[in-house]
Design a protein around this nucleic acid. Structure first.
Lengths: 338, 338
DNA sequence: TTGTACGCGTTATCAG
DNA sequence: CTGATAACGCGTACAA
């Protein structure tokens, strides 16, 4: 059990000063070949590594970035996280992660914890509760302290900072257009509560596509489901009491659940009803039939967010906030015609 | 943009010494009511928070734990992670996470990075490559430096440390027993390369159940698949050229893929072939038919691992390593009879 | 070529 | 009651 050695210990052992050791280990020209050799050999032997904490304190840079996401057992968020982690790693940054569990309180708690010096900047996606409350004082606080922040996916216009978002409105429009082109006319939308910016934007795209084609926007054809629910009866009733031939779902699970219900009702997918969902996750690839989905390119989102953040940490960008838009693409599978 | 205030700044502003401020903020009895009030009011106004990094340096405790997992877009690992995060949070710890991407090199890199003072202990699950190489010097290194380590799920007997594992052998045995009880006799195993301790243990349970019932262990009925592969032809051939009426799969994806193949071959699940998979993930709940699975209780594993680690960090346990076994349970769905 | 002194932010100890 | 000092581990400007 040889504990980690410090500069001081090496210095003492070799009977030189701490600064000599420090310089020698950085191969400084100031130090003679002889002492450098001696010190470097010793350091290697005892496997010296500078202490990150001490460096952080000295440099006022932790080389850590804090990520706060609403959920971790979640395909999209983990995909984004993977992108963040990869990119950050390449630029020498580590990642601390906190999960808000969709809770306003936990989001604040986590932010305050990390903001006390542990990280150089934040990447986050807002919790459901935060978007519902529409209260962003904790974000303003952090920004006010000069800590950079990048929001992704679940963002808000109330905060001025770098953002990475999907072209939600456009891709929803495209998706619906595609269904119309394949002959569908009675198109439903299955969505979450409207306070999610993403759901809101997707709904806008859905409506625009209908209007563009002279189709009515029928409120009865919009089903709003709670974020997490095991109860399928609402879905059952919705599809039983409405005449629907195509559905756009704002996430994968909703789509899978709805497909399951309509198939149990004896309808054929995609002939009778076609489906498109958001999030190109694992479910889509293995469902029956395989689900056509909107790929959000989470990994790219993550990389982009990390790039924006680290650029801001390392260069003094002074305002001048960017919003990068990731272009979604539609992955055609078996739940749509053609 | 009011930057974070330090003790020193408060001291200067109020014309007292740094130590007085420090004490006043901790409500020390040594300080007079008056000065305490004054200092506390000022601190509150400027929203003073002690700097984590400085505290870490002083206390030689970071209150961070490092988690290294092979993959993040992965139901089981994220579930475990959720358990870790929740439990750690309750005990005042933050989590730094690194992904090894199943790579030996990256695992070592990540460990070295975090071991340089950033964390008080590790929780990890070994990468595929590490298990294949069977080289654990980096783990020994870290343990040698006095940094506590808890392994979960993918563990090794070569390292002495706290561990959290599943009763893999037993639950595989139970699963196969159940299929035999329901009348199945020609039972296949679909597994990964044998260097995974979990696959190895599950195979042992599978064999024990067969032997216990006087059934032959037929090597032809064991299919070994690469960890990640898009090619289904091996699976197709396997089920075409063998007479099989039940299958135990060591993970969820394998099970879903195999079910898909045999159904395309015109067989009925579970009447002709029944399936049980490991990992009670999202796929199992939405597949057709819904998959009977072994629930690994990842969240509990995570909590347990975090508890073991933090206990070891905070108390000097001096060897005396525990291995906690989590009891898996079988979730019966539609892919098995009864 | 080497060493001294200082500062990063905090707390504990001891002196006043 | 309050303040000065040392220490955690490191790097660097400056002095010798």
């Amino acid at each position: 059990m040889k504990k980690r050695v410090t500069l001081k210990q090496i210095a003492k052992e070799l009977d030189v000063s701490v600064s000599t050791v420090s310089k020698a280990l950085k191969n400084s020209e100031e130090i003679s070949r002889d002492t450098k050799d001696k010190i470097q050999a010793f350091a290697k032997l005892y496997n010296y590594r500078p202490n990150n904490i001490a460096l952080s304190l000295k440099n006022k840079k932790t080389k850590n970035i804090g990520v706060i996401i609403p959920d971790i057992v979640h395909h999209f968020f983990t995909t984004v996280f993977r992108g963040i982690e990869h990119y950050a790693g390449e630029r020498g940054y580590n990642v601390m992660i906190c999960v808000s569990d969709e809770s306003f309180e936990k989001e604040i708690l986590n932010m305050e914890l990390l903001a006390n010096g542990s990280i150089d900047g934040f990447i986050m996606s807002l919790s459901a509760e935060t978007q519902e409350k529409n209260d962003y004082t904790h974000l303003k606080e952090v920004l006010g302290q000069g800590i950079p922040l990048v929001l992704f996916d679940r963002v808000t216009e109330d905060i001025e900072c770098d953002k990475v978002i999907l072209n939600d409105e456009q891709i929803a429009y495209d998706a619906v257009q595609g269904m119309i082109r394949s002959g569908k006319r009675k198109i439903a939308l299955v969505t979450t509560e409207g306070y999610f910016n993403v759901s809101f934007d997707r709904a806008r795209g859905y409506k625009r596509a209908l209007e563009m084609n002279g189709l009515d926007v029928d409120k009865a054809l919009v089903l709003t489901l709670p974020y997490k629910s095991e109860d399928d009866t609402v879905i059952w009733d919705f599809f039983e009491s409405n005449d629907i031939d195509a559905v756009l779902c704002v996430n994968e699970i909703f789509a899978i659940k709805c497909m399951d219900v309509v198939q149990r009702q004896g309808k054929k997918v995609p002939e009778d009803i076609s489906f498109i969902g958001f999030t190109n996750g694992i479910l889509s690839r293995y469902s029956t039939p395989k689900l056509t989905t909107v790929a959000q390119h989470g990994e790219l989102m993550g990389e982009t967010a990390a790039r924006l953040l680290i650029d801001r940490i390392e260069n003094d960008l002074e305002g001048n906030h960017k919003t990068e838009v990731i272009s979604a693409t539609i992955i055609h599978r078996e739940s749509t015609i053609n």
